[in-house]
Design a protein around this nucleic acid. Structure first.
Length: 854
RNA sequence: GGGAGUAUGGCGGAACUGGUAGACGCGCCGGAUUCAAAAUCCGGUCACUUCGGUGGUGUGGGUUCGAUUCCCUCUACUCCUACCA
């Protein structure tokens, strides 16, 4: 009897062997490098299925590339600063540092059971002073190069807990602990000047050929370049030294349709206005108080501006809540006929609507009729909708009859001539606010001296260590500003009393450069140039789509900034990017609407019941999350079925970029396959010595190598899995029909072990070993395809009028005429063409033969 | 409001640059093995059919000898983003 496959023994055995032989420890060498990186985890306590999927995908790539002769670096670390540690500190009364390091220990052990090809010698934790001291140095350099600066900015303030809240701590406008309504409060905070790199960040997206188009598009939209014009509108009478309003627009072609100007409630002019105009003051106050108001509102001031191109025309100036101070110049002109928002505003405040674009699809003969109609009911051009499409200029003096693009050009020339306008490009991308009023983060290395001056900490005094808190026993969040002993210091050069900056960095700061640090994680200096030049950029980066914008954009920015500061000399950090889908699971709810753990639910002849026999409602399939209780613990799965089963399931069926639904049946199927492989290998014992020499079927194996390779390269791992299934089915059929002998099977399985290794490394090693493979399977070379395609017999579909009617097994090297002759003699074909006329014959070698008949 | 994507059996999904639609896995059906069950193995599985065929890739149309694939129309769902001038 064959002994059942013991995954616990086997997996541990090979994991230990790999570790003992330091198989995954890498150094610079002469080989071509390949840097595989998965987004590093936050040490929350235990790994989840999202991690399992992410790291399995990366491991397939890493092992495959290694077998293909690359020098592969595949490191792992911990994104260790962050809010959950502080929450745990409050709830569990634990020191955030202890909590974090304990979690790292647990999660590392869990990851190790997955059999990942990681170089643990390179492990980093961002909360360690040896890591964050370098980013403090970067910050000082950024500050000295004016890439970091301070500015007033709003935060969420919890008036009960007296603390600043992160966005995720605000739930429905209330603090997560106190339940108090959150206030907006202005604080002076640190920013990084990412906006300086807007154009380069946008432009370099074009270089990223191995990034998903979707991510590039999202970043491009986020950067939001728009090319337009700034126009000066002269105030009819100046107000305390302000005599004009600058307006940014991309629709300068519609300037003759302008009927008002609107300025932001934060505009400098508004600040002057409200000093004299009580109505304006109360309007502004109203707008400030009503948060996230969607209704467009305006206040008509008694100011007017002169229309820049129409001599005797004045436009009223409004203060308005829909104009953003942060974008453009904080002021707009409104052309209601050709902008929906302006139209609504015009209708509300009784402003004229002047059409200046004749829609392209309206016949010129009907032009005057159309104009009349439009002007008849001034409030409702095009039936209440602004026209924003292509067309021809009307009602616009020297622009009449021009297209929109021609008009834009001509207007701009005119504005430049009159010195009241110029070209301008704006970006939506705003500077990155990096200040967090938190404890568990990297301290910002700055001191404030008694005389009010700001000074960076001297580099030789780094790191500014996060003070340890013993006996963590607080009832509300703690920040650095609460720690007086730490906060109070002195200026090292003048001896003047000083206070430390008590904000810490946004945790995106740490994750923006960790991929660089892996090259030399223990180096005193941040980087070693040779190493960086050899390993970077990351060849394949893998992670969730949720980081499409922030993390990836910040990392790109950091790379460019560090380059300009002289640390490195690459432009982009990640050559290839892959974004994986989520792991989902069914949700269950009880009668009273509470979420239920899947383990509490049993299926009884198609009906879902809880343990008490009550009916359970099956909800949507959603991303695994604690709140919905639809979480499957990877450790349980690995313990029960083994890492190979978990990995195989993660790779089967679902394409990596799509969501993967976790099902018990799917896991069972994966497990079945692992066992089947083992049974097949053990079946070798049933064979006695071969009676005759056997020839290993190279053609089928070549096809397997070819298909699996192509599918791995294209990230179609689900297809590679299907390829392997197909081959194993083929083998087991040969075995059960007794068509092959021992040496054939040995040969086939030994070779198959190599092909399967990136996916299910443990059992592959075991099979490799069983059949006397040399050394370790993990070190084996990926086989080369030796193809001989021409000789092959193929099945050629024979069509009549494009519908397949017969299948011919023929030699592919036969010439066209012979094939046609053979096909015409085929019974099924003869029958159909004998009384008809063949008017065309289409032959595509190796693909089809088609007779067109009448 | 703007942008992107998806739609194929009972289910997850295959089908290279237009060339046998449904690979592979699950489920289901039948059989073998078993005292019985689990496990395992073998066979079948798009629908209809008068067994000759006919229809079929969200809807309707088009291009083509031939369309899941290319073009247009509509529908549904998903994701991102949102007063960006």
């Amino acid at each position: 009897m064959s002994s059942r496959y013991n995954h616990k023994l086997v997996e541990k055995k090979w994991q230990t062997k790999w570790e003992d032989k330091k198989v995954f420890e890498t150094k610079i060498n002469d080989k071509k490098k390949y840097y595989v990186l998965e987004m590093f985890p936050y040490p929350s306590g235990k790994i989840h299925m999202g991690h399992v999927r992410n790291y399995t995908l990366g491991d397939v790539v890493a092992r495959y590339k290694k077998m293909n002769g690359y020098n592969v670096m595949h490191p792992m670390g911990w994104d260790a600063f962050g809010l959950p540690a502080e929450n745990a500190a409050l709830v569990e009364k634990k020191n955030p540092a202890d909590w974090t390091y304990q979690n790292i220990k647990t999660m590392k052990k869990q990851l190790q059971t997955m059999g990942l090809s990681l170089d643990w010698k390179r492990e980093i934790a961002t909360c360690h002073p040896d890591y964050y001291k370098h980013e403090q140095a970067f910050f000082i350099d950024l500050l000295n190069n004016k890439l970091a600066y301070k500015k007033e900015s709003e935060v969420n303030w919890d008036p009960v807990d007296k603390t600043v809240l992160a966005n995720e701590q605000v739930i429905d406008g209330r603090g997560w602990r106190s339940g108090a309504i959150v206030e907006r409060k202005k604080l002076s905070q640190w920013f990084l000047k990412i906006s300086k790199y807007s154009e380069e960040l946008l432009e370099d997206l074009k270089k990223l050929d191995d990034w998903p188009e979707k991510v590039k598009l999202m970043q491009s939209n986020w950067i939001g370049r728009s090319d337009g014009v700034v126009i000066k509108f002269k105030l009819v009478s100046a107000l305390s030294e302000i005599n004009e309003i600058e307006v940014f627009t991309t629709r300068h072609d519609t300037l003759f349709g302008a009927s008002f100007c609107a300025i932001s409630i934060e505009h400098p002019l508004t600040k002057k206005i409200i000093q004299k105009d009580k109505g304006a003051a109360s309007f502004v106050k109203d707008c400030e108080n009503i948060d996230q108001e969607k209704i467009k509102r305006g206040y008509r001031t008694n100011l007017f501006v002169q229309h820049p191109l129409i001599k005797d025309k004045r436009l009223p100036v409004f203060v308005s809540n829909f104009v953003l101070m942060e974008y453009g110049s904080g002021a707009v002109f409104g052309c209601p006929a050709h902008d929906q928002r302006d139209l609504e505003f015009a209708i509300k405040y009784g402003l004229p609507v002047i059409p200046v674009i004749l829609p392209a699809d309206i016949d010129l003969k009907n032009k005057s009729k159309w104009c009349k109609e439009q002007l008849k009911d001034k409030k409702k051009p095009m039936k209440g909708e602004a026209f924003v499409g292509e067309g021809i200029l009307i009602n616009s003096e020297f622009l009449n009859n021009k297209t929109i693009n021609e008009a834009k050009k001509t207007v701009l020339e005119e504005l430049i001539k009159n010195k009241i306008g110029k070209k301008q490009t704006n970006y939506k991308l705003r500077d990155w606010g990096i200040s967090r009023q938190r404890y568990w983060g990297c301290p910002i290395p700055v001191i404030y001296k008694e005389d009010g001056s700001i000074q960076a900490v001297r580099k030789e005094d780094l790191p500014v260590e996060l003070p340890k808190i013993n006996n963590f026993n607080h009832s509300s969040s703690i920040t650095l500003s609460d720690l007086n002993d730490w906060k109070n210091t002195a200026c090292p050069s003048t001896g003047m009393k000083a206070i430390r900056e008590t904000d810490t960095f946004d945790t995106f700061f740490e994750s923006s450069w960790y991929y660089l640090r892996y090259c030399n994680p223990r180096l005193k200096e941040p980087f070693e140039k040779n190493e960086i030049n050899y390993w970077l950029p990351v060849d394949q980066y893998i992670g969730g789509i949720e980081h499409a914008i922030l993390h990836l954009l910040y990392s790109r920015f950091f790379t460019k900034a560090l380059r300009d500061l002289g640390y490195i000399n690459i432009d982009e950090p990640f050559r290839g990017l892959f974004t994986q889908g989520m792991v989902t699971h069914k949700t269950f709810k009880s009668e009273n609407g509470e979420w239920l753990d899947p383990e509490e639910v049993v299926v009884d002849s198609g009906v879902f019941l809880d343990k008490g026999g009550k009916k359970v409602f099956v909800g949507k399939i959603e991303k695994m999350s604690k709140s919905k209780k639809n979480v499957i613990n990877p450790s349980n799965i690995i313990n029960l079925y083994g890492a190979d089963t978990a990995r195989w399931f993660m790779l089967s069926d679902s394409p990596p970029e799509r969501d993967l639904e976790w099902t018990d049946r799917g896991v069972a199927a994966a497990h079945k396959f692992i066992n089947k492989l083992w049974e097949l290998s053990k079946s070798i014992n049933k064979y006695s010595e071969p009676k005759k020499l056997e020839v290993f079927d190279l053609d089928t194996f070549n096809k397997l190598i070819n298909d699996v390779s192509v599918n791995i390269e294209q990230f179609h791992f689900n297809k590679s899995v299907a390829n392997i299934y197909e081959y194993v089915n083929y083998l087991s059929k040969l075995v059960s029909s007794k068509k092959i002998g021992k040496s054939f099977l040995e040969n086939a399985l030994k070779n198959l072990a190599i092909i399967m290794h990136p996916f299910i490394p443990h059992i592959s090693e075991e099979i490799w070993c069983l059949f006397g493979g040399e050394g370790l399977c993990v070190n084996a070379s990926w086989p080369k395809v030796k193809y001989s395609i021409n000789k092959k017999k193929i099945k050629l579909p024979i069509q009549i009028n494009g519908i397949t009617r017969s299948l011919l097994t023929i030699n592919n090297s036969l010439d066209k005429n012979t094939i046609i002759k053979v096909a015409k003699n085929d019974k099924k074909i003869t029958k159909r063409i004998k009384s008809k006329e063949v008017i065309r014959t289409i032959y595509v070698p190796g693909k089809i033969l088609n007779f067109v008949i009448k």
